[in-house]
């Protein structure tokens, strides 16, 4: 058993808002191994980004965080800002969702990469600049030595995201957190940015936490996948287990809502009915129960714990939070949710 790089225990994040206390993260346990790519998927508001920001200590001031986040033998939670800034960028790099706003408009991109370097390394001016150009070249910016003095507004969205990736990998961190790195980008640019991300983790030998709602992105890169719903981890397993034998109805629903290239083109996407529960207050039972087609009485009263799935797939690390996980795992994919195409153009028999 390898020592995990990052160990999150009983993480709980609450935000006090005017409407009451919002529990964004409800007791999650998660560990990240060296040199792995961990995908975190879930819909908006499921707590993916909040988890990453909690690790970085970048949550808003009204956040109340409990639990523990260990990196090596250091506890990151409750650390002073000054100590945290010696970890941010050096041990953990982060990539944000919107490349159009995540670079400072008044400094050149080279300056911003150099700043990331000089925050943790003592290099001469020339070496720093050379290093910045090298990093920009690595992430695939053409004519990097020419463009290093350009400003962010002179770059396209995809190019800017590469700059952000160069900043995140500047000090060869052990962990790179990528929070929806391709969401704001054109589909054609996404692949290039993912490639740059792959270069970044290869170069810095970092583990990558890839947060996204796009299962396609996860399928290409991740070795392990975490599915989050309503601030909880509802399923965790190898990418194969999650994609080929999901044990949680919500994961089924997510997979069923992806368009496939190998179907005949006539099948409609199956959607998950309803919407995620409110994050204010606590309802008893399974958070997914109101939307679940397999709902039984127990689902409404008792919240299922995250348990190993005793399954035919034989992967012991496959865990799911469902009372009927062992049944769900044997069900064929995408059969669980009703096909909603009935009320549309069904040809008359």
């Amino acid at each position: 058993m390898v020592e995990p790089l990052l160990d999150i225990k009983d993480l709980d994040v609450r935000f006090s808002t005017s409407e009451g206390e919002t529990r964004a993260i409800r007791g999650i346990n998660l560990s990240l191994n060296p040199r792995e790519v961990l995908g975190i998927v879930g819909e908006s508001g499921s707590g993916k980004s909040v988890t990453a920001l909690a690790v970085m200590g970048l949550l808003a001031k009204n956040a109340n965080v409990t639990g523990s986040i260990h990196m090596g033998d250091r506890e990151l939670l409750g650390m002073k800002d000054r100590q945290l800034s010696s970890i941010r960028g050096l041990k953990i790099g982060m990539i944000f969702q919107d490349p159009l706003t995540s670079l400072n408009p008044v400094y050149s991109v080279g300056w911003q990469v150099e700043e990331a370097i000089s925050a943790h390394q003592d290099l001469s001016k020339e070496k720093r600049r050379a290093e910045a150009i090298r990093l920009l070249e690595l992430v695939g910016i053409p004519r990097a030595d020419d463009r290093v003095d350009d400003y962010p507004h002179e770059f396209s969205g995809g190019m800017r995201q590469r700059v952000v990736i160069a900043i995140a990998m500047a000090n060869n961190p052990q962990i790179i957190l990528a929070d929806e790195p391709t969401t704001a980008l054109d589909v054609t640019v996404q692949a290039q940015v993912l490639e740059a991300l792959q270069v970044a983790i290869d170069q810095s030998h970092a583990s990558l936490v890839l947060i996204t709602h796009d299962l396609g992105v996860v399928a290409g890169l991740a070795s392990r996948v975490v599915v989050m719903y309503a601030g909880r981890i509802v399923e965790i397993g190898t990418a194969d287990a999650i994609f080929y034998s999901p044990a949680m109805p919500y994961t089924h629903g997510l997979l069923g809502s992806i368009p496939r290239v190998d179907d005949d083109g006539g099948a409609r996407l199956r959607q998950i009915p309803g919407s995620p529960p409110s994050m204010i207050g606590t309802q008893p039972g399974c958070p997914f129960a109101p939307r679940c087609p397999l709902r039984k009485d127990i689902c409404l009263t008792e919240e299922p714990a995250l348990r190993s799935v005793s399954s035919t797939t034989g992967t012991e690390a496959h865990q799911a939070a469902c009372h009927f996980a062992s049944d769900v795992v044997t069900m064929p994919l995408a059969s669980m949710f009703p096909d909603t195409s009935d009320d549309h153009e069904e040809p008359p028999q």
């Binding site: 970085m56 970048l58 800002d81 000054r82 800034s85 010696s86 970890i87 941010r88 960028g89 050096l90 790099g93 982060m94 944000f96 919107d98 706003t101 995540s102 670079l103 400072n104 408009p105 008044v106 400094y107 700043e115 990331a116 925050a119 943790h120 952000v164 900043i167 995140a168 500047a170 000090n171």
Partner: peptide, 26 residues
């Protein structure tokens, strides 16, 4: 509250650097 201020913090800039380099100039 701009995203680039968060990026600067994520780089490991001290709060003084964040305030004077990134916020003041803008």
């Amino acid at each position: 509250v701009q995203d680039y201020v968060r990026t600067a913090k994520a780089k490991g800039c001290s709060s003084r650097q964040v305030l004077f380099r990134h916020s003041f100039r803008n």
